[in-house]
Nucleic acid binder design. Structure first.
Lengths: 199, 199, 199, 199
DNA sequence: AATGAATGAGACTTCATTCAT
DNA sequence: TATGAATGAAGTCTCATTCAT
């Protein structure tokens, strides 16, 4: 994306950002162990010592990417909460909207997503956090009488995350479906269920 | 197999099986790269050359475990199909039963499950296979009028796998819930949906 | 010193001892930093991984040599104390004997001596220990009236160690003088002083 | 030299002197290898290229410090010889004075002393030079009948250097004793000996 | 059936040093 | 006078794998 063949004395920040970007790609593609510092720097047309100019070690750059993902997820969560902009929309529409926004973020940051959602040892933690928040929202809807009282919201939240994870990797990142479509699919299924209620 | 009480150095098959079992545990616990051949053989009280007596290399033992999982999954699939024992049961009960059986298998083989369902590069393939089969079953139920006609069975199957995966790692393997309970939760949610239909 | 060209499958202990011996020589000759693991193993006709088979890391082998020196010094100290074999000898003769024995040990272990007495960061500690013991002996002789009452035994002990150190590196290890001769020189000087008392 | 209050970037000489001073401290504290060019310049608030503006390489700055020590020692030697100011003093007093002056120099230049007397590969050479000169002085005193004829002046000189070295590092630099005190201790011991000559 | 001993290959990391401005 | 950016060279260490018995 950046202009190929940076000038020799590029700004340090540029080199750093480049390394970060390439590392994200490599980690996402090959995992932590099969991503070598040597291959990162080669892809960046830099030397190994340069890598250590900007990152303490291989672990550190990975952690930085993990954190980047986590922070963006937190931002995302905040934004979600602050967005009663769809006041008049139905509950379903709002949920679809939120899921869609999450998927949009994932599709815009596929490498980071793969790292933070799959490779990171902290992935479980991050997902647990998301589950917690979803559950809180669901509890609210249950109280409001929108969802049935006997719903195990904790489990529903876990299921939602499981679904999002799978569809992200199987449909979204390979660009087989759009965020909107996937979000609709998911929410529709979970809310309506599968039963044929005609007649 | 037969424990003929060999005085020393157990039969070759025994050593092999021991290595396989220990490797499964280590891989499941630490992942592929952080599982060292040296630690496997140490845990088995054997030497490194012995390892290579039974397995071509580290990759080979991992693949063998992957295949073990896959074969057992195929066995499982067959058994499922051959089991019209619940003929009279409702569709929902049958589905719950099948999911439960799968979870029982997972909970009895936690290491293999972690390997085949999470660590293996072939995990996607295996899951895809499962999705395919689930979809076929669902299509049948839709035709039978049990599920609504406009159901995207492919996506439902994907969702089901995503849910199973998550609940397996988050509830089943940590032994927070029993297979039956989890299966019921899942199927109930997917079939009934979340809506409060009272009025 | 060992037979050149050990057989391939040498006993592990032999390889270990060989590495230790060669390392001692290299450290003594070139210091810690200028001694490379690669040069140690090359001199031992072994490969680098073999080094790590027997020693945790470069530091560890150096520490082992330090400790070897320290332990031998402690042995030496014990032996010195347990040796009233020279009962009838004069105080001066006994001191000469002890210094000589120390120098004999040094001359038999030149590499270890250079390491433990010069290169080691623990050298100061070891010397301090020796000073302490010498001081105790001197205090005893002073009480016995052999040495003058106003002698600062602590400082004398420090001086003795300083002298021993210098003469060890300047005369003993380069084999310019024998232990007996050096010991006599030192003790004679310190006890008699330099003054011309004739007249 | 002149502090003309240059607004920014001090005069070259100042930077050079600063580097030299800091390097001395770091070398003295951490030894040659554990002193990094990077840490020297950081302590001087300068950049690495600036270091190479003033010194050919790391070795060069170390050598310069070695030489500084050597030159000052030579100055010191000259001053000693040119100082018959104590004409009427006894031989002992004169020797004490000289030793004290040396120690004063050491205590005023602790870093340089540690470098030139301990770390430098030329330390042996420097000490040998000092020994030579001390020996010449001693020979003179022997001829003058002040010291006993059978004195091995070469060895006495070696001993004196050994003692000075040890007491410098153990008492002087840690500021446990003053130059005067140490000088008196040393000379008194060497001249008078340890014997109790009362009767 | 088993292993004590050893190693090729390669990863990560550091440091003195230089280029271009 | 000074430096931001970069690197060649080299060292330590690890790991899967094999040799010879």
């Amino acid at each position: 994306m950046g202009e190929r063949g940076r000038p020799k004395g590029a700004s340090g920040e540029e080199s750093r950002a480049l390394l970060l970007e390439i590392a994200a790609k490599e980690f996402a593609q090959n995992g932590y162990h099969d991503t070598k510092v040597s291959s990162i720097v080669k892809a960046a047309s830099l030397s190994q010592p340069t890598f250590y100019l900007y990152f303490k070690n291989k672990d550190a750059i990975f952690e930085e990417l993990e954190n980047l993902f986590r922070l963006r997820m937190i931002d995302f969560a905040k934004k979600s909460r602050l967005q009663p902009a769809l006041e008049q929309a139905t509950v379903k529409e709002r949920i679809i909207y939120n899921v869609k926004e999450l998927l949009v973020f994932f599709s815009k940051n596929p490498n980071l997503t793969r790292i933070g959602f799959y490779l990171s040892t902290k992935a479980d933690e991050i997902k647990a956090q998301m589950v917690k928040q979803i559950k809180e929202n669901l509890d609210f809807e249950v109280d409001a009488g929108y969802f049935r009282k006997n719903l195990d919201t904790q489990t529903v939240a876990e299921c939602l995350i499981g679904i999002i994870e799978r569809l992200t990797f199987i449909q979204l990142l390979p660009q087989k479906k759009q965020p909107q479509e996937i979000a609709t699919d998911i929410v529709d299924l979970l809310i309506e269920g599968m039963l044929n209620r005609e007649k």
